[in-house]
């Protein structure tokens, strides 16, 4: 399936999603409220079968007051690629957990929570994964401050 027909198929299944420009692979943008429904379709649709969640991460845009969540899906059955992006507000960064669809998402979401502070609804065990439990702040946010951290002198 070529990228164009893949995007067309996804759009017919869920009319609310938009194509995301500025990406090197087929990419769609999904409202966070429908994320779980779209992901379920993407995993279970017979022509799609996206069974491998390669990456789950978040990008911080403090100027636009949003986090962009990026999911990179791969289908080992059909050899397809798809980027799913979803925006959550920075003031209330809550997104549905996809760990019920892909078990690996449980730990990838823990990483996103640990470093970026994105909260996931219905996550079985949302704890920090790399940092200590008493760590203050989310270090990958652009406005993170740490008195121990050294800036590279110019």
């Amino acid at each position: 399936m070529d990228p164009e027909s893949l995007l067309a198929l996804v759009e017919t299944e869920h009319p609310s999603i938009r194509r995301r420009s500025h990406a090197d692979r087929p990419a769609v943008s999904v409202p966070s409220g429908e994320l779980l429904a779209v992901m379920t379709t993407l995993r279970d649709h017979a022509d799609l079968r996206f069974d491998l969640l390669l990456t789950l991460t978040a990008v911080d845009f403090p100027g636009e007051d949003r986090f962009e969540l990026l999911y990179r899906l791969y289908s080992t059955v059909h050899g397809l690629w798809l980027i799913v992006s979803s925006d959550v507000p920075r003031s209330r960064p809550v997104a549905p957990s996809v760990s019920s669809l892909w078990p690996i998402a449980e730990w990838q979401e823990r990483e996103a929570y640990d470093l970026m502070g994105v909260l996931y609804d219905n996550h079985p065990d949302l704890r920090r994964v790399f940092l200590e439990d008493d760590w203050v702040g989310y270090p990958l946010r652009k406005d993170y401050q740490d008195e121990y951290m050294l800036e590279l002198p110019k």
Binding site: L131, P139, D146, M149, L150, E151, L152
Partner: peptide, 10 residues
């Protein structure tokens, strides 16, 4: 990892 790292002990 001396600069810009938030965890590494120098």
């Amino acid at each position: 990892f001396m600069y810009n790292s938030y965890t590494v002990v120098r």
